[in-house]
Design a protein around this nucleic acid. Sequence first.
DNA 1: ACCGGACGAAACGCAAGCGTTCCGACGCTC
DNA 2: GAGCGTCGGAACGCTTGCGTTTCGTCCGGT
Lengths: 189, 189
Amino acid sequence: MQPTVTAALTRALFEEWAARGYAAISLERVAKTAGVGKAALYRRWSSKLAMVSECSEQLGIELATIPDTGTLEGDVRKLLGGLRRLLRHPIVSRILPDLHAEMPRNPELAQAIRGRLQTERRRRAATIVERGIARGELDERVDPELVNDILGGVIYWRMIVTGGQADSRYLDRLTRFVVAGIREQVSRE
Amino acid sequence: MQPTVTAALTRALFEEWAARGYAAISLERVAKTAGVGKAALYRRWSSKLAMVSECSEQLGIELATIPDTGTLEGDVRKLLGGLRRLLRHPIVSRILPDLHAEMPRNPELAQAIRGRLQTERRRRAATIVERGIARGELDERVDPELVNDILGGVIYWRMIVTGGQADSRYLDRLTRFVVAGIREQVSRE
DNA sequence: ACCGGACGAAACGCAAGCGTTCCGACGCTC
DNA sequence: GAGCGTCGGAACGCTTGCGTTTCGTCCGGT
């Protein structure tokens, strides 16, 4: 098993996925793109689902932990900046919506993804909220789940769904929006 | 051209779309589901793309205008409630993410969708903001675009991407969050 | 120098689905 | 009641892609 061949196949899979969409992935084209025979592919994975499931797990790994900037607003801005960088990636930006569309139809895939990407994301939102509480910036009743939805949802919607861009000015406004919302969420309850 | 046949084909297309995903739509199955010969289908649409493009335009029509509740908070809550009802629809909730994944790969489809759904959505967000300004609840510098992203993005993310549910309590908190954010957005600029 | 495993390439049988064509049946209009 | 258009159903040739198999080759270990 040559590792270079495995790497070439994995990279080719993501290219094919981004270009054609999940359902239209052809392992024939993947092998050809990788400059590899089909036999080498089937020696590693038994089917399309097996290959996709295993390779998908590499998607969310690069998400670094959020550095502590000292303020809630700084942390939020930093997180949004990281998300923007991720969603700008030409491969990721095409694969993510495809993945989300496929998950309800493919329980095995859904389990692999939810177990990895989303747990990680939730953890990061929780970290930010906890820091805010520890600093005294936030009431302890703030719901990390809602904060997580807002941090992820708005920028995902903006960049992926509507195809709009998110410049620094946009991120700044969004940051202020989110911070104000987090504070207000509890102060009136 | 029997209208009942056209209706049966259209309905069958959406069922097939929701069940299999855009790329895996089979017009053979669509015709069979509709209880119709393939000839009847191809007498109406020249290809899969033609059928999907035309039928897609029926998706966003039902979006009613937002009733004026008298307060910004009431309007926002009403809009979110309507979105929740839409996103709970079993067919819509499956087709929408599939559509968003397919749009970057299919310019013709993208144009049809962006021209209909998104323009309509933007208009509704703008209406709410304008009412808020007219009532004196909002500063006139509020950016309707950002408001639109937040209204649509968070609940879409919550219900479609993460597969979570949005109960009334969640919508109430989200409403407070959004209203607070809208106000704060400008007051500090 | 030899031997075995992984390699690229090509062909296999099979299934699905495209868009087309032909058929006989049914219903409406004149 | 004769004629025309649409209907459902079936088959057509064609392409794509699956997963398998068979080659001959190349490279690394002993």
